[in-house]
């Protein structure tokens, strides 16, 4: 669990992070979103002490982060940044082994860990372990960057616009992979982005920042239905907020059991995608299909519409 308490950072006359408090429960995914220059990176970097705060403190699992030397703290916290920051003179395997080496793991422990991670990120160890970063595609480099951040099994992973350099299709895939990885390893993640869609897609909780202040830190749906500040409503999008709300719920959650007909809708699809599909087919209802191919139930446009307004 990460507890950020009244953190503040000044550069010269400007307060870049202004009295920010937030808690990320163990195993949760928090996203910090805001415009460029709003202080997101500075806030994130105060968690692993790449930046030392002027006031306030950070607790990880109840321990003040200032209780140990900064570089030792950082070895326990994964850190991945935009453009991956892979070492060009080291192979993929050596890059991933960076923190385990710093921690003095034995080769016998490091090797299987590298293989496990490469498999988890869909990179065949035989083909990729001994490649150099410049021999990989942008998407592969980014995956190795995240694998490296996770190498020493950190309980906490900090990510600063990790997908910023990827094109939209690869980015979508990278986001899905990250969610799968998080579920698999149970990592607590804090991710910084300026992309609201990314924030809504990834975050259990989303923090909206502007000019160093945290305007609201809440579940994504609550940001839409109960914005704490007009700026939050503007930043999360007023014109398409109903659709955004629909995108937060899966079709499976709204399906009513029983007889069903109409076009097939995967249970994992969002209500937004389900609505789009029904509109496209000119149907007023569809069949929600489980992943194993069985029918879960009926989903009507009326039910979706009812879900698209704030409770």
């Amino acid at each position: 669990m990460i507890k950020v308490e009244n953190l503040r950072k000044r550069y010269g006359a400007s307060t870049v992070v202004d009295d920010v408090t937030m808690t990320v429960e163990r195993g949760r995914f928090a996203v910090i979103v805001g415009t460029s220059g709003s202080g997101k990176s500075t806030l994130l970097r105060m968690i692993n002490r790449l930046v030392e705060p002027d006031a306030g403190r950070v607790l990880i699992d109840g321990k003040d982060t200032r209780d140990e030397p900064a570089h030792l703290l950082r070895r326990r916290i994964g850190y991945a940044i935009q453009g991956h920051g892979l070492f060009p003179h080291r192979t993929v395997a050596e890059n991933i082994a960076t923190v385990p080496h710093l921690l003095g793991w034995s080769e016998a422990r490091i090797r299987p860990r590298i293989e496990e991670l490469l498999h988890a990120f869909q990179l065949d160890p035989a083909g990729y372990a001994h490649k150099f970063p410049h021999q990989l595609s942008g998407g592969q480099q980014q995956r190795v960057g995240v694998a490296r951040a996770l190498a020493a099994e950190p309980a906490v992973l900090l990510m600063d616009e990790p997908f910023g350099a990827l094109d939209p299709i690869i980015r979508g895939k990278a986001q899905d992979d990250l969610l799968a990885i998080q579920r698999r390893f149970g990592t607590t993640i804090v991710l910084v982005t300026h992309d609201m869609d990314e924030a809504f897609r990834l975050g259990d909780r989303v923090a909206v920042m502007s000019h160093g202040r945290m305007l609201q830190y809440d579940r994504p749906a609550a940001l839409l239905t109960r914005p704490a500040d007009p700026l939050v409503a503007r930043m999360t999008g007023i014109a398409d907020r109903a659709l955004r709300l629909l995108s937060l719920t899966g079709a499976g959650e709204l399906a009513t059991p029983g007889a069903a007909d109409g076009p097939e809708i995967p249970a994992a699809a969002s209500l937004r995608d389900a609505l789009s599909e029904l509109l496209w087919r000119g149907a007023s209802a569809g069949r929600v299909m489980r992943e194993d191919g069985t029918v879960q139930g009926q989903l009507t446009i009326a039910a979706i519409i009812a879900h698209g307004k704030p409770a």
């Binding site: 692993n48 790449l50 570089h71 030792l72 703290l73 950082r74 070895r75 326990r76 850190y79 940044i81 935009q82 453009g83 991956h84 920051g85 892979l86 070492f87 060009p88 003179h89 960076t98 923190v99 710093l102 490296r148 951040a149 900090l158």
Partner: peptide, 26 residues
């Protein structure tokens, strides 16, 4: 590259490890 140095520090390299392991080789 600044990104590289930040990654090195962010992973917990000491100033000396960063110099010997990253900066000088590059």
């Amino acid at each position: 590259n600044r990104e590289l140095l930040e990654a090195a520090s962010g992973m917990g390299m000491s100033a000396r490890q960063r110099l010997l392991g990253v900066e000088l080789p590059i």
